[in-house]
Each structure stands twice: as C-alpha cells, then as structure tokens.
Measured scan of single mutants.
Amino acid sequence: GSLMYASIFGNVSAIIQRLYSGTARYHTQMLRVREFIRFHQIPNPLRQRLEEYFQHAWSYTNGIDMNAVLKGFPECLQADICLHLNRSLLQHCKPFRGATKGCLRALAMKFKTTHAPPGDTLVHAGDLLTALYFISRGSIEILRGDVVVAILGKNDIFGEPLNLYARPGKSNGDVRALTYCDLHKIHRDDLLEVLDMYPEFSDHFWSSLEITFNLRDTNMIPGSPGSTELEGGFSRQRKRKLSFRRRTDKDTEQPGEVSALGPGRAGAGPSSRGRPGGPWGESPSSGPSSPESSEDEGPGRSSSPLRLVPFSSPRPPGEPPGGEPLMEDCEKSSDTCNPLSGAFSGVSNIFSFWGDSRGRQYQELPRCPAPTPSLLNIPLSSPGRRPRGDVESRLDALQRQLNRLETRLSADMATVLQLLQRQMTLVPPAYSAVTTPGPGPTSTSPLLPVSPLPTLTLDSLSQVSQFMACEELPPGAPELPQEGPTRRLSLPGQLGALTSQPLHRHGSDPGS
C-alpha cells in the first residue's frame, strides 16, 4: 500500500510541476520586462504597450523563439521550412505564380514574418522605404497627419515599386495596425538579389506586381527641396563636378596662354591676372594647382613670374625650331616645348642647366612650328573623362623618358669634360720664339709635331656638333674642335714665318 501511495504521489506532483513550468517561465520573463521598464524609466503609455505586446506574443508563440529554433537546422532544411511557412503567400499572390521551385525557395529564405499588435506603428512618415510588405492577416491604416487616407487588409501590398527607383524613397505617411496583424516583408536588397539570379522571372514579377498603396513621397523628385535634403551631399558634389568641367572646357578654348597655377587659371584673360583667384576666387580649394602655386600668395601677385606667355621676339635665322618633346602628345598638341628640351639645344645650356634650372624654367623657349593648343594648358582630366590607368601609364612613360634624357646628358657632359682635359694635357705650358741651342744640326726643328685630335665617332658628340652648327654659343662658352686643319689655341699665330727665318745662335768662333 505504501508503494502504491508513493507512486501516485510522485506522478501527481510531476504533472503539477509540468503544468506550472510554463507559468514560471512566463513570470520570469515578465519580471525581466518590468525590470527593464523600471531601469530605463519608460513612461506609462509606452510601458503599457510593452506589457501588452509581451503578453500577446507569449500567448501567440508560447514563449518560443522561432528564429532561434529555425537557425538550429541546416540551410537546406531551413529553405523547406521557410517554404512551408510562406506557402499561403507564395501560392495566392499573383506576382509569385509561375516561378520555379528554386526561385520560390530563394524568396522564402528572404521573407521575414512580423507580428504587430493593435496601435503599433510599422512605418513612420519620413522613414526610408527599405522593404516591401505583404499583409497575411489583420488590417492596417495609413495616416497623413491625423487623416486616415487608406485601410488595407489581407493580401494587400504596400511599399514602393523598387524597379522604378535606384534609391529608396521616404514614406509619405504613417502605417498603423488596427488589429493583430501578420506581415511578410522582404528587404529591398534581398528581393533585387533574387531577381538578379532569376532574370526570366524578374520581368514577370515586375509586370504582375500591383502595389495597393504606394508609400513613396511624390514630392521626392529631382530638383525638389525634399530631394535635395535626401541627396544633399551627392547633389552638391555633382554640381561641383559639372562646374569644374564647364570651366576646364572654357580653358581649352584659349591656347595662347600657358599658366603654371593649374587648370583653373589657364583660361583667365590678361585683365584677371591681378585678381586673387581668377574664376576660382569664390572657392580657392575647388581646383588643383601645381607646386608653384604656393608662391602666388606673396605680395606682387600681378607681377609674379609664374604666369607664362609666349615671347614675341624673333628667332635667329640659324636657330632650330626646338628640341624633341618629352611626351608623344607634344608633337601634336603643344605650341611651347618643355623646359628640359631647351637644355639640349647647345653645349652652353648643358654647362648651365643644373646651376640655374629654376631660373631657366621661365626663360624664352623655342617654339614648335605648329600653332596647336598648349601642352601645359590642357586641363586636368576628371576620373569620369580619362581612366586612372591611362594617366598612370603616361606618367610612367614620361618618367622613363626623363631617365633616358638624364643618362644621355650625363654621358655627353662626361665626354666633353674628358676631351677638354685631354686638350689641356697635350698642350705645353708655354712657348717662346727663341729656342735653346741643340747639340747638333738636327735641332733646327722649332717644335715637335703635334698629332691632331682623333675624329669623334660617338653619337652623342655628333649631336653636340649638330647643335653647335645651329645654335649661337654665348661669349663665355668653350669652343669644341671642328672639322678641318686643327691648330692649338695656345700656339702663336705666325708659326709659318718662324720656319722661314734663320735661327740666331749665340757662340764663340775658336779662330777669332
């Protein structure tokens, strides 16, 4: 009898404990919600809404976190579960008819179910419309201010047509639940991603989709105040780019002037030289400038040598048109050559190039014969006009050509200096018209024969001689050997007369 009593008592207590286990969990969670309300000092109306929603959600799901349970299964099984949970929507909604099984599984994985109690606001006026909503159960109302403009029910759709707008718009009203509602919502990016994977279904979906109420604000059109608020930074940046392009296009129409201050000032006329910023005076940081632009901040801005204009002085008759350009485009679109090309026009420029290279940067340069637009006047290309890779490749080509020119210049200078040193070592320090008596009659020769300089066969020296023939050397430049009979510069000019005159010897006659 005691054994029977113990078994009955144990079973009854276990049954009672299981009955009250759900209630215990409910009270535990309710205590957490109330502690949250007390800690954050939530006001009474919002506090009442929180408690009511918790009670309804507990009775609806029995305190089970559906998302946590669903995430515990593998992905393939999750797709089947989501397809079952959203079967009513996918079967009865017209846009989803005719979709393949794979497309429906992908869509079912992207849908999220939302449960809303009465009085809950789903979308506020001015919120971004980031999702498309399908009503599965219940009814909602749409308000503009305090005026109800629409009441939607089961199988209705609200949001915005995503295929017509590249960016999400703003809501033009509040969406509030009238009863307990079940909503299926899919985010904008998720829907577009699935439709991109199934393009054959995309056309059918957009053609058959009928949005019951379009929440997009109709005033959000390009150029409206609301649109400016939504895309303020983007609009200002776009206007700045367009104004920069218009100014650079105007600059290219004036090829007669070359400016070292950047493309923003290349198009300024002579009357605007004294102004601080020219056409860019209202925004000094709008356009890029070269490193020399920092010198323009000092006094005497109108007389600054940074602004270059072609000189009108005539060229000498024998002067060549100019050196070879550094870039391939210089032959086609440049009416002034790079300062480095002028360094190779003569030997005198070679000796004085490194010492006063900055001073020569603004000297007169030889002109190319074609009066085409200036290379320095070409505006900086924006990322939309020329690819970045093209600019980098041009810079690399320019750097390689500069290296080759520097190597060639160093070799030419070394060769010229070597020839000058050899000339100085071969010439005796001094010569006299009267020579010392020699031991015999073989001493009648006034000077030792001097062998002429070897013929220069280097390509670089031939180019130097060509430049010497075309360029007029300055007075202080050293002379180079030329073709024809060679003669030492330090010898007297009348050596031929010395050989014809008898030598005057000093000596005593033994017979006297």
Results as ranks from 00 to 15, higher is better:
471 E>T: 06
168 P>A: 07
190 D>I: 03
195 L>P: 03
191 L>Y: 02
422 R>T: 10
145 G>H: 06
345 S>P: 07
264 G>V: 09
347 V>H: 04
203 D>N: 11
371 P>N: 12
271 S>H: 13
189 D>Q: 07
323 G>I: 09
455 T>F: 08
437 P>G: 10
263 P>Y: 09
469 A>Y: 15
251 D>P: 13
301 R>N: 15
335 D>P: 10
175 V>K: 01
410 S>Y: 05
130 T>G: 09
231 E>R: 10
339 P>Q: 11
432 S>E: 06
477 A>S: 14
200 E>K: 04
466 Q>P: 12
502 P>K: 12
273 R>I: 03
284 P>W: 15
403 N>I: 04
349 N>T: 14
199 P>E: 06
267 G>M: 10
336 T>W: 06
308 L>R: 08
153 G>A: 08
375 L>E: 10
299 P>F: 04
403 N>Q: 13
267 G>W: 07
265 R>L: 12
408 R>E: 03
345 S>V: 10
428 P>S: 15
295 E>Q: 13
481 P>N: 14
369 P>Q: 10
410 S>D: 03
464 V>D: 14
297 E>I: 10
291 P>A: 12
503 L>P: 05
498 L>C: 12
205 F>P: 01
344 F>D: 09
223 G>Y: 10
168 P>C: 10
264 G>M: 12
288 P>W: 05
141 E>Y: 03
287 G>M: 05
286 S>N: 04
329 D>S: 07
201 F>L: 06
373 P>N: 13
245 R>H: 10
201 F>A: 07
171 S>F: 01
476 G>P: 10
164 L>N: 08
271 S>A: 10
478 P>S: 08
471 E>P: 10
279 P>L: 12
417 L>R: 08
262 G>L: 10
406 E>V: 08
312 S>N: 11
226 G>M: 10
243 S>N: 11
433 A>C: 12
218 T>D: 13
211 I>M: 07
436 T>P: 11
478 P>L: 11
150 A>V: 03
479 E>H: 15
417 L>W: 01
241 K>Q: 13
381 S>W: 05
482 Q>E: 15
369 P>E: 08
411 A>L: 13
228 T>K: 11
208 S>P: 01
186 I>R: 02
246 R>K: 08
182 D>W: 15
414 A>D: 12
419 L>C: 06
459 D>H: 06
213 F>V: 07
268 A>N: 12
466 Q>D: 14
346 G>V: 11
160 E>G: 03
345 S>C: 06
413 M>D: 05
210 E>K: 09
477 A>C: 10
219 N>W: 10
154 K>I: 04
295 E>G: 11
289 S>D: 03
207 S>A: 10
471 E>Y: 06
377 N>I: 01
162 L>E: 03
400 R>A: 06
503 L>D: 15
132 L>D: 01
135 I>F: 01
377 N>Q: 01
133 Y>K: 01
188 R>K: 05
146 D>W: 01
230 L>S: 11
267 G>N: 10
126 G>P: 01
248 T>V: 14
496 G>Q: 13
320 P>S: 10
355 G>F: 04
191 L>M: 08
416 V>H: 11
363 Q>K: 05
267 G>K: 10
423 Q>D: 06
429 P>H: 11
197 M>Q: 10
229 E>H: 11
168 P>Y: 03
350 I>S: 10
462 S>I: 12
219 N>S: 11
234 F>I: 10
470 C>R: 14
305 P>I: 15
372 T>V: 10
192 L>E: 10
174 D>Y: 07
257 E>W: 10
501 Q>V: 09
372 T>N: 08
214 N>R: 01
346 G>Y: 09
129 L>I: 13
262 G>V: 11
301 R>V: 08
450 V>I: 07
151 I>R: 06
324 E>C: 07
500 S>L: 13
396 D>T: 09
352 S>F: 01
460 S>A: 10
403 N>H: 12
210 E>T: 10
429 P>G: 10
198 Y>D: 02
